[in-house]
Amino acid sequence: MHKKFKIMMAAVSLLSFSITADAAIALDRTRVIYTGNANSMSLTLSNDNAHNPYLAQSWLEDERGNKNNLPLVVTPALQRIEPSHRSMIRINPVSAAIGLPQDRESVFWLNVKEIPPKSERSNVMQIALQTRIKMFYRPTAIIPPKFSRWDDQLILTRTNKGYTVDNPTPYFMTIIAIRGADKDAGAKGFQSTMIAPKSSGHIDSEHFKEPHLTTINDFGGKPTLAFHCTGEICKAKKQ
């Protein structure tokens, strides 16, 4: 068979399939804060498909992708959700939670994978979509007053390629943008960076006279805070 004809046949074969990839299962939040004084925590899953039931598979992973022997578990691991209905998943601690650091947060990933019903049509390729969000375990000793902020404790130090960011707080800090003024466009090509508690990280960026950092807070909000620089060191302006 001629090579050109083979390619044409392959193209026709691919076109004979339809691909379905509409998301159906949705979580009620974009991040989870599990506090050490909670016996358990419930989250809502909804099936936004008005016609078909879906299976929802839920599990946790640590930073390395490990799923086994974790200090927290998700139940049920697998459930069926009817069309346009809601259901719940519950996060529960196990005895291993006692071994988590009590002076800072720990981070995990909450995964929810939707499994669609088998299609009644032929030549249909179905794709199982997966939601993956951060889950932070916050020990009782560091639970702050409601609506507190701690982005104002970050310290920036100018480097040749951007800034070193020192995070002296016991909380994970996710920086999603840096700019020269509150309403300016963010630095081009900026990569979102999560900095662990009581540690430092680096962000690649041009330098600004007064850097403005945008972070993500507990509620999924994106506050921006201005910093004042003295020499190479930049600290948050007092509010």
Rank of each mutant, 00 (worst) to 15 (best):
H2N: 14
K3P: 13
F5W: 13
K6M: 14
K6Y: 13
A10E: 08
A10W: 11
L15Q: 14
L15I: 11
S16P: 00
S16T: 10
F17M: 06
A21R: 15
D22L: 12
A23E: 13
A23C: 03
A24S: 15
I25F: 02
L27V: 04
D28Y: 08
D28G: 09
T30Q: 10
R31V: 03
G36T: 04
A38T: 03
N39S: 13
M41S: 11
M41A: 05
L45P: 01
N47M: 07
N49S: 07
N49Q: 06
A50P: 15
H51C: 08
H51E: 14
Y54G: 02
Y54A: 00
L55G: 11
A56E: 05
Q57Y: 08
Q57D: 12
E61K: 05
E63V: 04
E63N: 04
K67I: 05
K67M: 14
K67V: 04
N69K: 13
P71K: 11
L72E: 04
T75C: 00
T75D: 00
A77Q: 15
A77F: 02
E82K: 09
H85T: 03
H85L: 02
R86W: 01
M88F: 07
I91N: 01
I91W: 01
S95A: 15
S95I: 13
S95T: 13
P101K: 09
Q102M: 14
D103Q: 10
S106N: 08
S106R: 07
S106L: 10
K113Q: 15
K113P: 01
S119W: 06
R121G: 09
V124N: 01
L129Q: 09
Q130W: 09
T131K: 12
T131V: 02
R132S: 15
P139E: 06
P139F: 12
I143S: 01
P144R: 10
P145Y: 10
P145N: 14
P145D: 15
K146F: 09
K146P: 00
F147Y: 14
F147V: 08
S148W: 06
S148R: 08
Q153E: 14
L154N: 10
I155M: 08
L156T: 10
T157S: 12
T157W: 00
R158K: 15
R158A: 12
N160G: 03
N160L: 12
Y163H: 03
T164F: 02
T164P: 02
D166F: 06
P170E: 04
Y171W: 11
Y171G: 09
T174M: 00
I175K: 00
I176M: 10
A177P: 11
I178K: 09
G180R: 09
K183V: 13
K183G: 03
F190D: 11
T193A: 06
M194W: 04
P197R: 06
I203T: 06
D204S: 11
E206R: 14
F208N: 03
K209E: 13
E210L: 02
E210N: 07
P211N: 07
P211L: 10
H212W: 14
H212M: 09
L213D: 01
I216C: 04
I216P: 04
D218A: 14
D218V: 08
D218I: 06
F219I: 03
G220A: 00
G220C: 07
G221Q: 07
L225W: 05
L225F: 00
T230M: 11
T230P: 01
K235W: 00
K238N: 13
